[in-house]
């Protein structure tokens, strides 16, 4: 699973799982804090449709943590004030980079994929109940 996918699953559906994983495994892999958790900004770059050009929409607050194990650095970045989650994400990034506890992580992510499917389905159904049925309007 690529980083885009696992960060999406943990941030959207698995905050508690990420924190639990970190709490259970942090003593089993020696790592030092490079920086953070610290607050900062991410500037959002957007492509607009009218001219297909780029512009800056504005900034979003993020929390960033960096952890080191050997030569590898794990990165945790998440929207909002989330010191615990950013630390857990940095640790998980480090685990993937150093190939440690990956079976456990993949099992968690597999469960989160199921949760994602269920959540998206539920949200989609709720939103689509507001879809206009023009045939019905003519009844």
């Amino acid at each position: 699973m690529n980083k885009k996918k696992w960060t999406t699953l943990f941030i959207r559906y698995g905050k508690e799982e990420a924190a639990e994983f970190y709490a259970l495994h942090k003593d089993q892999m020696e790592c030092t804090t490079v920086s953070g958790p610290m607050e900062g900004l991410t500037m959002i770059k957007v492509r607009e449709h009218a001219q297909n050009s780029l512009f800056y929409l504005g900034e979003v607050r993020v929390t960033e943590t960096k952890l080191r194990h050997g030569k590898e650095i794990g990165l945790g970045v998440v929207k909002g004030d989330e010191p615990e989650l950013s630390t857990a994400l940095a640790f998980i990034d480090l685990c993937f980079k150093t190939d440690q506890f990956t079976d456990t992580l993949n099992n968690i992510l597999s469960d989160l994929e199921d949760r994602e499917t269920e959540a998206v389905h539920k949200k989609t159904q709720e939103i689509l109940r507001t879809k206009v049925n023009f045939d019905m309007m003519n009844d």
Partner: peptide, 18 residues
């Protein structure tokens, strides 16, 4: 606050429409 990152190019076609 320090600006830590710039996002990758955001494509609104990926928006989850509500």
């Amino acid at each position: 606050l320090p600006r830590l990152y710039y996002s990758t190019v955001t494509n609104t076609r990926e928006m989850f429409v509500k």
